[in-house]
Nucleic acid binder design. Structure first.
Length: 717
RNA sequence: GCCGGGAUGGCGGAAUUGGUAGACGCAGCGGACUCAAAAUCCGCCGGUGGCGACACCGUGGGGGUUCGAGUCCCCCUCCCGGCACCA
């Protein structure tokens, strides 16, 4: 994996996921059975953008190059060169990336990240700037925080030369510029970028309009959203009049001719830092030797085992404080050396555990041939919170294993179902020491007090607890629900039915156990109905043959039609994983069977036997225990798992007459019954003749008639 | 802030492609059975007006497209998930 893991700066190890950015993006198209929302999130996360990478020249006068501080290391792709005192003035290139090269003539300042070499350089002779840079570096690196912080900046006193105008432009340090994206430097075009506009207003920098959109009038007083739209160049010299595409092409060509840049594709995706300063996780198998450098732990010493006798004290990485773990011999020279104490992000393990499942007993290799039989995973199910990170890392990891010849497929998960989160109320108390203690909802009583206000107390001591609102069930908030309580009281099948019936799995759900009674009631009804049916039946008569098509009783035919209609819908719902309506279909079928007319003959028996057989098979995936038992007890077969999935009988679905809703001007005004094969003209005349309808037509001429076969007639007057 | 998703009766939810809004269930109300209760069974159950027939309103808010919008388009509000060291 040497080519795939890269060590950067001092403590971080990275996976080079960016090397697969394009393939990971393109691969989404080969996943038709993944939810669109997950693919959209991944595509945006990878964030492929087309733009221009180009450079501003700068020369640093010798008097700005001072001190004995060693030059900063060049950042990734950054053009800043180290200073060498005593040589002629510094020459360097400040590289930037932009998706809006058409606005290049509107550049009025430059902004670099606090970590940028140019910032470090300027800070050496400017303590105020050094303090600002420190402040920026201390701030959060989380994107969500960066996006909401106040945009601040400070000038460096360094000027760079605009490659096309030759103008001098001052370089600022901005707390909103990310070193990890692009070049760690951006061009400031306040005329057409909202963030730059605010920055320029705040620090009194010039704002220039260089894009015109349909001749709208431009003012530097306030930002207008259209300022960021594509348009045509103005106030841009030779580029005036060019539209976005032509301006970008021309400007990129000009920069290229100057040797100062060209078009470039950039990804938002960053490499994956896997170092963690934690005890749990896989140790990174590297030994640091003063003489030999960083040496991989030899195969015969793997795996590096975590010590099992240390007690974390809550500060720092406990491994680093365990000499028995750290101190070791260099595998190359045998001299004393230090073992790496960083462990891997747990996402590393979760990226391939499912592959290892196929050959968990394989002790001589990572995987073996059995992987080819079992993988890729046909149906993966996981929470929507994994839409990006886990699922993207797994797709990356699979490709790495493929390129190493370990697996023969690109994508780990063929079909994906992402559950919505289950939410529950959070209860807590602040302890004397100021920490927060969370209490499980099962241990809390919620009652209405005498004044009607809600009173929440801990059952153990009767004292109040506070509510922290509704949130995702989590270990840290202790607001999960153990289904065991439901299982103890109602049985596992009732617990399953209740949960499947509550909502479709992809949807967010606020937990409540009200309604579990209904699930229990339904299963009892099913049980009793099945046993009554069995007792009434002649011994040994319960086949699952379809009833004779000539079911004479029209009421029985209606029952059968209802059952097959419900089955048709449930069959579709099953394919789209809408299990709550499959459960509902089972209830509808039982309702229909209970309503079946009490005519005691073979036809009735056949309809009930068929309907019950359909019901049991529909319900078996949801409540396997009771369905398996009844299937066998009623003589349908030995094992419901081997039974075929029920199919609707097209014959049963045919009705002689259909009911059509009649609308006047789109409002429901009545309904009519027409023969199943009635012509459009016949339907129209029946509809117009309907009493309720006539009232609303009230003699007005009918301008238009819309007939939706099998559904409705709409008369437009 | 950015990306993705959501909002429908007292509650969970249904309505595949625009075509009867509220299926199915919970809770509630009324009734049967019972000495009584539980269990079970039957009926009612979006809002307003009306004795009623019925009418009008109604799918987070505002606008639009359409014969017809919960569904499509534009704008807005609130809620949930993710934002790279919780995993």
């Amino acid at each position: 994996t040497g080519a795939l893991v890269e060590k950067r700066e001092i403590p971080m190890y990275y996976m080079k996921i960016t090397a697969y950015a394009d393939e990971l993006l393109a691969g989404l198209e080969a996943l038709p059975d993944w939810p669109e929302r997950v693919k959209a999130m991944q595509a945006n996360w990878i964030g492929k953008s087309f733009g221009v990478r180009f450079a501003f020249r700068y020369e640093l006068p010798a008097d700005q190059v001072g001190g004995s501080t060693p030059p900063p290391p060049a950042g990734r792709g950054a053009g800043g060169e180290g200073s060498v005192p005593g040589t002629p003035p510094e020459k360097g290139l400040l590289w930037v990336f932009t998706t809006r090269a058409d606005t290049i003539m509107g550049v009025t300042f430059m902004a670099v990240a606090a970590e940028h070499p140019l910032a470090a350089h300027a800070a050496r002779s400017n303590p105020q700037l050094a303090a600002f840079i420190d402040e920026c570096k201390r701030g959060s690196v989380m994107e969500a925080d960066l996006a909401t912080i106040e945009k601040k900046g400070m000038p460096t006193g360094i000027f760079v030369t605009h490659p096309l105008t030759g103008d001098k432009v001052e370089v600022w340090v901005g707390n909103y510029v990310l070193m990890g994206y692009g070049e760690g430097a951006v061009m400031g075009v306040p005329g057409h970028d909202e963030r730059d506009f605010a920055f320029a207003k705040k620090y009194g920098l010039p704002i220039r309009q260089v894009i015109d959109v349909n001749g709208q009038s431009y003012s530097t007083d306030a930002w207008q959203p259209w300022y960021a739209d594509h348009g045509s160049c103005v106030n841009s010299g030779k580029y005036d009049g060019l539209d976005y595409d032509r301006a970008v092409d021309t400007i990129a060509a000009d920069l290229n001719a100057l040797g100062l840049g060209d078009k470039q594709v950039l990804y938002r995706l960053r490499d994956w830092g896997i170092s963690r300063q934690r005890y749990w996780g896989c140790p990174i198998p590297i030994i640091h030797c003063d003489g030999c450098g960083d040496v991989p732990v030899p195969d015969d010493q793997l795996p590096v085992a975590l010590p099992e006798d240390l007690v974390p004290d809550g500060s720092g990485n406990p491994l680093a404080k365990t000499p028995a773990f750290v101190e070791c011999a260099c595998p190359k020279c045998g001299k004393p050396a230090r073992r790496e104490t960083d462990t891997m992000d747990t996402f590393v393990d979760s990226s391939w555990y499912y592959i290892r499942y196929a050959c968990a007993d394989q002790n001589d290799a990572m995987v073996d041939k059995r992987v080819g039989y079992w993988l890729p995973v046909d149906q993966y199910i996981g929470g929507i919170e994994h839409a990006i990170l886990h699922l993207l890392y797994s797709r990356f990891w699979t490709r790495v294993m493929r390129d190493l010849g370990l697996v023969g497929f690109d994508e780990p998960f063929t079909r994906l179902l992402t559950q919505g989160m289950v939410l529950n109320e959070i209860f807590f108390r602040k302890t004397d020491s100021g920490r927060i203690a969370y209490f499980n909802p099962a241990d809390v009583d919620v009652k209405a007090g005498d004044d009607g206000a809600r009173r929440v107390t801990l059952r153990a001591d009767g004292q109040p607890v506070e509510s922290g609102g509704i949130g995702t069930m989590s270990k840290s908030k202790n607001n999960g629900v153990d289904p065991q309580a439901l299982i103890d009281e109602y049985g596992a099948d009732t617990a399953r039915l209740f949960m499947m019936f509550a909502s479709p799995p992809e949807q967010t759900l606020e937990w409540s156990d009200s309604g579990v009674e209904g699930a229990s009631r339904f299963l009892k009804r099913l049980w009793h109905f099945a046993h009554e049916f069995k007792e009434a039946a002649d011994a040994g008569g319960n086949g699952q043959d379809a009833p004779a098509a000539s079911t004479a009783d029209p009421q029985l035919s209606e029952v059968r039609r209802e059952i097959h209609k419900v089955l048709q819908q449930a069959d579709y719902d099953m394919t789209r994983h809408q299990f709550n309506t499959v459960a509902s279909a089972a209830m509808k079928i039982l309702n229909a069977l209970e309503r079946a007319p009490q005519v005691s003959d073979h036809a009735r028996h056949a309809v009930l036997a068929e309907g019950l057989g359909i019901l049991l098979r529909l319900l078996a995936p949801i409540t396997p225990h009771i369905c398996h038992h009844l299937w066998r007890e009623l003589g349908y077969g030995e094992d419901i798992l081997t039974a075929a999935w029920p199919q609707p009988d097209p014959q049963a679905l045919v009705a002689d007459e259909v009911e059509l809703v009649v609308q006047v001007n789109g409002k429901r005004r009545g309904s009519i019954r027409v023969p199943q094969d009635a012509s459009r003209a016949a339907i129209e005349s029946i509809a117009v003749a309907d009493g309720a309808v006539r009232k609303f037509v009230a003699g007005q001429p009918v301008k238009k008639v819309v007939v939706v076969p099998g559904r409705l007639v709409n008369l437009v007057v």
